Structures are given as structure tokens and as C-alpha cells.
Amino acid sequence: MANISGFFGNVVSEMRKVSWPKRKELTRYTVIVLSTVVIMAVFFAVIDLGISEAFRWFLKL
């Protein structure tokens, strides 16, 4: 049991050393991540649509 309490004590100690981002940085990083996810989703949706249409066209021949 001493090992578990020592572990959590070390976790708390290390978490106090963490440099957390400021609100402005966090907002900026969140916008970057969300916009990247949206751009990649649109990109792959367009690629998927193109491949699907190519297969439909190929199967009609």
C-alpha cells in the first residue's frame, strides 16, 4: 500500500511541475486541430466519392 501512495504522491508532484498552456494558446491549438480534422474529413470524403464513382463507371462498361 505504501508503493501506491508513494506513486500517487509522485504523480501529484510531477503534475505541479507541468507548464499548462494559457487560455489564448489553448484556444489557438484547439482551432488548429479542429480545422485540420475538418479539412482531412472533406479531403477523404472527396477521394472516397471519386473512387466510388470510378468503380460505378467501370462496372457499367
Score class of each variant (00 low, 15 high):
4 I>A: 11
59 L>F: 10
19 S>Q: 09
11 V>W: 07
13 S>V: 08
26 L>F: 04
38 V>M: 12
30 T>G: 06
16 R>H: 09
33 V>F: 12
32 I>H: 04
7 F>G: 03
52 S>Q: 07
56 R>V: 03
56 R>Y: 07
8 F>V: 03
56 R>F: 13
25 E>W: 01
51 I>Y: 01
44 F>P: 00
21 P>Y: 05
6 G>Y: 07
27 T>F: 10
4 I>N: 05
27 T>P: 01
17 K>I: 04
51 I>M: 00
59 L>W: 11
5 S>E: 13
57 W>Y: 15
8 F>D: 04
34 L>S: 07
22 K>F: 11
41 A>C: 07
10 N>T: 10
59 L>V: 10
59 L>Q: 12
59 L>K: 11
32 I>E: 08
53 E>H: 12
41 A>G: 06
28 R>N: 08
56 R>N: 11
17 K>T: 13
3 N>R: 12
60 K>Q: 05
42 V>S: 07
24 K>T: 08
1 M>K: 11
17 K>G: 09
15 M>C: 09
3 N>P: 00
60 K>L: 04
53 E>V: 14
15 M>N: 07
32 I>M: 05
42 V>P: 03
33 V>Y: 13
47 I>V: 09
54 A>K: 02
56 R>L: 14
23 R>H: 09
58 F>P: 01
15 M>F: 14
24 K>G: 05
43 F>Y: 02
5 S>K: 11
21 P>F: 05
18 V>G: 02
31 V>R: 01
40 M>C: 11
25 E>P: 00
22 K>M: 14
53 E>P: 00
52 S>A: 13
31 V>C: 05
20 W>M: 10
34 L>G: 00
48 D>G: 14
10 N>G: 11
54 A>N: 04
11 V>G: 10
61 L>V: 03
53 E>N: 14
33 V>S: 08
8 F>K: 06
35 S>V: 14
11 V>M: 04
50 G>W: 08
33 V>P: 00
27 T>V: 15
27 T>N: 12
46 V>D: 05
29 Y>V: 14
20 W>L: 14
42 V>E: 04
34 L>K: 05
5 S>Q: 15
37 V>H: 07
58 F>W: 09
11 V>D: 04
52 S>G: 01
31 V>W: 02
2 A>E: 15
50 G>Q: 06
2 A>I: 15
14 E>N: 01
39 I>S: 01
12 V>P: 03
57 W>I: 06
30 T>K: 12
56 R>M: 12
46 V>N: 00
15 M>I: 11
24 K>S: 02
56 R>T: 10
13 S>R: 10
54 A>R: 05
57 W>A: 07
19 S>N: 13
10 N>R: 09
32 I>D: 06
21 P>E: 04
32 I>P: 06
51 I>W: 02
40 M>F: 10
39 I>H: 10
30 T>I: 15
29 Y>I: 15
36 T>K: 08
7 F>C: 07
42 V>M: 07
44 F>D: 01
54 A>Y: 08
23 R>K: 11
49 L>C: 12
40 M>I: 09
18 V>C: 03
26 L>V: 05
21 P>I: 00
